[in-house]
Write a protein that binds this DNA or RNA. Sequence first.
RNA 1: GCCCGGGUGGCGGAACGGCAGACGCGGUGGACUCAAAAUCCACUGUCCGAAAGGGCGUGCGGGUUCGAAUCCCGCCCCGGGCACCA
Length: 865
Amino acid sequence: MGHPLGFIGTDVYARYLRMTGHNVIHTMGYDAFGLPAEQYALQTNTHPRVTTERNIANMRRQLRRLGLAHDPRRAVSTTDVDFYRWTQWIFLQIFGSWYDADADRARPIAELEAELDAGTRRPAPGTNPGDTPWATLDASGRRAVLNAHRLAYLAEVPVNWCPGLGTVLSNEEVTADGRSERGNFPVYRRPMKQWMLRITAYADRLIDDLDLLDWSDAIKSQQRNWIGRSTGARVRFATPAGDLEVFTTRPDTLFGATYMVVAPEHPLVGALTTPEQASAVADYVAAAGRRSELDRQADAKEKTGVFTGTHATNPVNGESIPIWVADYVLMGYGTGAIMAVPAHDQRDLDFATAFDLPVVDVIAPADGSERGETAFVGAGTAINSANDEVSLDGLAVDDAKAAIIAWLEGKGLGEGTVQYKLRDWLFSRQRYWGEPFPIVFGDDGEPRALPESELPLVLPPMEDFSPTTSDDADSEPEPPLGRVEGWSTVEIDLGDGSATYRRELNTMPNWAGSCWYELRYLDPTNADAFVDPEVERYWMGPRSPEDCGGADLYVGGVEHAVLHLLYARFWQKVLFDLGHVSSKEPFRRLFNQGMIQAYAYLDDRGFYVEAADVVERDGRYYLGDQEVRRELGKMGKSLKNAVAPDDMCERYGADTLRLYEMFSGPLDQGRPWDTTAVVGMYRLLQRIWRVFVDEETGEVRVGSGEPTDEGLRALHRTIASVREGMETLRFNTSIARITELTNHLTLTYPDGGVPRALAEPLVLLLAPVAPHIAEELWTRLGATGSLAYEPYPVADPAWLLDDTVEVPVQVNGKVRGRVTVAADASKDDLEAAARADDKVAALLADATVRKVIVVPGKMVNFVVG
RNA sequence: GCCCGGGUGGCGGAACGGCAGACGCGGUGGACUCAAAAUCCACUGUCCGAAAGGGCGUGCGGGUUCGAAUCCCGCCCCGGGCACCA
């Protein structure tokens, strides 16, 4: 367990909400399927079921020790059979539906089948390879067409094959330099038939609904960037090998296209290559294939490529332009082919310069400047862009785009379109530790859903669950479940009589369970549904027509920005479309807690030394006599700078640890851990304790006297600020106000006898942050039950107003004096009081007052000149 | 390169456009103690000054305003994400 900053944060907030009369679900679960858990099990040579359960038990103990008031009845684990039967059930919902682009929502596949039967709908493009009419297709052919529509489908596509882990990975699990996020193994792009989830169908809604969410801009923009929506056009260029389609965001520059480029993996490369160029192109394509993503990026600036020998015709002006093969065009985006407009795209200009290709300017900068080494990509006016039928000349970029798209569409040469970077979610893993797919295959090779009655499909026990890994990029995936005796086939009646089917041997990725676990918290023991619809509506349903619904608060790390948080939103939307939930977003408010870092120390060989043994002398750091270098880093074993929460509990108690973590800064900010500063909160608790208890005698020393006005004023002011801090999750300021009140009480009543009317609210104010000591003091004050449901103190507005206020008096904006006046003093009275102040009067004596600004109750400013 | 955050004492951090540095750590001095630890009290942005008092201060440079840490423009630095995405 890392530092429990976020857990403590939600606990404080949940306790506060409970005391302010809210019905609160505060719980947490264990998402323990998948690569992290399985890799750990492999390292320790123990079954993942064992390591998982052991880790969960240890974590429960640590959480309990911190006094985290999670509801244990709702603490689900994604690896429990009772849980993953519903993960499988939801997968079947996804498998059992298709995206109706007209209705812009998912619908049950049976409705598609009915519409196809009725002839009111035709198969979507690309779902019916032979174009055989639906009515004349046989059962297997129809199944294939339906399967191609599903939100969960099998496809032979380029995937991320990671032999080091023995499995394929999703795009989101691969780092920018082409390695696995988990384990840092190399990843290779390779075509393979795998399960995909059609998250791209939701691309627009995933972007647009971000506007409904109370999330940080950082996470929102990460999701927007990842989905990568760009609007533009597809345009078809005629070539001897047939039409070559490109995607461009700048159709307005079509007249400036002077050559084309296809990716080395483009299917038309062979057909486009002339015999004279064949060997050069073949060499280039082979070389590009050998280069990893990393290599390609390393020398991204150096443009390479080969001419195919073939020319295409620019559809707008009939120009014959050469077609090249170059690896700066990626097969994975757009159509894998581009039109190159070197005048207005830097990459194209670099390439054109390297290979001496022509450059034609078609957009004139507004300022009339000349193009130099850099392409002009800014806004301007179209020039040199006219044919017999259409002229863009003189149009601004946006107008030119609209005009040329209209022309292209009229001629059937292209159309306006939207392109996304987001790819469908690769959902199968060749690993053991995950949910088995509730899917079987018939003789025709088409997948079929297992009936709900077959759920849960229990993960069969395995002694040797290890994946088949290698360092060979050309190795083949071998799912471990294939090694389970009697598992790979099953005899079952799926409606056509009993038959033998092959089981799907892949398992789901670790993100599957966490796509919906927040919904299970609501109704954790329901055996008839993943969540009762009414229960879901009560806790997560929208509260107004504009509200997207969802959990009220989700606290988590930023690392899930494009993984868990994207996937979970997708599943929620599918469930919403199918009518299973009333909320279209899973997490209405997301709060990213910061990471607690710690100083780490390196010796002169560059090795980390035990941070706990390092001492500071005169601003330098030493291990014994040896000076060491300090840096700030993530806490952990590798940097030898871990501080275990358990140790802190041992030394100072859980309440001190909770206070320290909440006090040292706002929840969303990372900060260095500072063990020496922990004592501050320990002292605070001691001072509070002494307000209530005589250390010599153990007697309660709270008095029965009446509080003074001053005391009540301090109390109510504290209540107001503490509440504000609680509401805004800025617990650090709440704790500071509690400290001030405590200091006020200890100074005012040095010998004890703090009036009960002040002491009781102090305990209640403290309770959410330091529940253990608060409960103890509450009992000492004579209560018999817990204070967890006591009403949180409410500030009386009457005590928030002072009779008199001290107001700063400025001369030319600089504070020169202070005057004390009645809180409701008028402007004139305030100005008169300010003028009467000795120091101010002296400054005003030999100056001309040009202007006087008086803000009643706030300040006075004399402008003199 | 692009997109997000963020720069305030020795440190963590407070401050509806209105007293910069709350609160805590550390430091200094004191109380308690045979002594230490623990605890408690006082002081603690910086410069000049014996003091009273004054100058300067929120990364840098401009601007708006009676008044800017806060709003605007242009830079610099740090952290995170994306990146040959057409």
